[in-house]
């Protein structure tokens, strides 16, 4: 005896009730539970769907699907960092390296003036405002995508909702930008370091807020063979 389409949908709902929110993570337990239920029916054809489902779920142990979710989240975050790193490498190869160098030079020249603390705050403010605006825009985009497809993919959520995490590391340094000691603004090593940090901040923010979300379809297709099914 095989499971019907409504029973399969019931299994999807069951996994959601057990905190498996992402469609890419639901597929596997749904198939596993379905196989187990069908095997149980071979020996006990009169067993109800609900009873067989609960028996099958018990085999996942006390933690249920949690260990699998945790492992998957680690794997997807690793994958996201790999995509980010691959894009970052492009900025140090031709032709983007010219943009990277120009950006660095621009910051260096600006910070070499007497207005380093003010300019650092102004640049910092501009980038933060842009990052917040993009964050809100991407979050809306993510909600719209979910409404249309009725599915949520783990990598998709990382791309659209956690894109600011890397930038947050820089954002948390506001106090240090605000309180640049006076003696530092004439120190060439400090100016070079500050320019490098700002260049990295701009490039990483641009990749995570602009480049990766624009490549979302390609990356999701590459990650999930079932994405186009």
């Amino acid at each position: 005896m095989k499971l019907t389409e409504p029973q399969i949908q019931d299994l999807y709902a069951f996994t959601r009730q057990h905190f498996v929110e992402h469609y890419d993570l639901q597929t596997e337990p749904v198939d596993h539970l379905a196989n187990d239920i069908e095997t149980q029916w071979q020996n006990q054809p009169k067993l109800s769907f609900e009873e067989a489902k609960n028996k099958a779920f018990k085999k996942f142990g006390v933690c249920g699907f949690m260990d699998a979710i945790e492992q998957r989240a680690k794997a997807m975050n690793k994958r996201y960092r790999r995509y980010l790193w691959n894009e970052l490498k492009n900025w140090f190869a031709l032709p983007q390296i010219f943009a990277t160098l120009s950006l660095f030079l621009g910051f260096y020249l600006a910070f070499s003036t007497f207005y380093t603390p003010i300019l650092a705050l102004v640049f910092y403010g501009i980038i933060i405002i842009w990052a917040i605006y993009k964050g809100i825009q991407l979050n809306r985009q993510f909600r719209r995508r979910k409404e249309i497809s009725n599915k949520k993919w783990m990598l998709e959520e990382i791309i659209f909702r956690q894109s600011g995490v890397t930038s947050m590391v820089f954002m948390s340094q506001l106090y240090n930008v605000y309180r640049i000691p006076e003696g530092f603004i004439t120190n060439i090593y400090f100016i070079v370091g500050l320019s490098l940090a700002f260049t990295a901040f701009v490039i990483i923010s641009y990749i995570s807020f602009e480049v990766l979300p624009s490549k979302a379809e390609k990356l999701l297709n590459e990650t999930y063979p079932e994405f186009c099914l």
Partner: peptide
Amino acid sequence: YPALHKLEAEGLLDVEVAKVDNRL
């Protein structure tokens, strides 16, 4: 499943998805 996901993340396994009966 956590072990399979770990092996996949480490690049030791590849995945393929197919529609079998009425499920993936």
